[in-house]
Design a protein around this nucleic acid. Structure first.
Lengths: 171, 171
DNA sequence: TATTGTTATACTCTATAACTATA
DNA sequence: TATAGTTATAGAGTATAACAATA
């Protein structure tokens, strides 16, 4: 496939939204449009994280959690925040620790737990990745009108609240 | 976790968007908000497809592709439309065929290809799933104001175009 | 030579569940 | 008993690559 889709190629590359026929309902089209946007962007981010930083979205996510918690986080906290089960946090943490990006620190008051922190190397690495990440997003969203960005932001805020209120959490 | 998050629980359950600090940029917050919404809804849909129909999103997606192509589709077409590689289509098609939901039909003009179609059972099954799917979405989005839905729809249309134009396709 | 589809393989992410060591 | 974390396992989803049959 080409790097940049030509208008003709866009016509020829149906996506999820084009699955709806002419008489399908608007809510469904709205959802498929949302899903398509998200998949396109997320796929792009995953690809860039892989090729430019040899990492993955869950690993990036875990480091982002630690970045905003300089005092460290427990495994169980990470599990709760990232909404995945405990064993998976162990696996990702193992990888990152092996690469010297995070560190398990024993906590004296509870010998079962440990506090996970970014190492100095982890902080440097994360800062670079996060800067790139933000740049990718800004480059993309700069193609959007100011009005659309504002509308999107507000409407998504409303949607997020509705979803968090009505939907059963995943795990 | 509780089925319905109380407001307090929402406060206690950070999501991706809360990763941004106070001085982070708006575009990043917009993207994380989009991602959070999509993950919440997609997770819910996946869960419902699994528990209520013992199926998955890619399987549902493949059946949806076939549903709008009553004349059938070639494996390579499915691969292109679903944006995954060929071997995966073979796998999903094998499963669906074993359950009698789709059928491989030999095509006379090219003995390498086959046309995949929904069987009668496949059509019935898909119609039920699709109706449920639309109902789930409507139930969720009914919590959104008319204005937000309209704004979302339009802004996402713009975003989709920008993303399709600027981003490298995944595979 | 190029394309269609299959097969084999490997890797990431995920959930479940059994386990340990503490509390 | 309950909690923190680990380990083991299984399964979905994906990409890569080698392959056979056909174009």
């Amino acid at each position: 496939m080409n790097d940049i889709l030509s208008p003709a190629a866009i016509e020829d590359t149906p996506d999820l939204e084009t699955l709806t026929g002419p008489d399908d309902h608007d809510d469904l089209r709205l959802w498929l449009r949302l899903l398509t946007c998200c998949n396109l962007i997320e796929g792009d981010i995953r690809g860039r994280l892989r090729t430019e930083y040899e990492t993955t979205l869950p690993r990036f996510d875990l480091m982002a959690q630690l970045h905003r918690a300089p005092e460290g986080m427990k495994m169980s906290e990470l599990s709760r925040h990232m909404m995945v089960t405990n064993g998976n946090i162990t696996g990702i943490t193992d990888q990152l620790e092996k690469e010297g990006l995070v560190q398990r620190n024993k906590v004296l008051t509870d010998r079962r737990s440990s506090l996970i922190k970014l190492t100095a190397k982890g902080k440097r690495t994360f800062r670079k990745m996060a800067d790139s990440h933000e740049q990718w997003i800004q480059d993309l969203l700069s193609g959007l009108s100011e009005k659309s960005r504002k509308n999107l932001f507000e409407a998504l805020g409303e949607l997020k609240l509705v979803a968090q209120t009505r939907l059963t959490p995943r795990p």
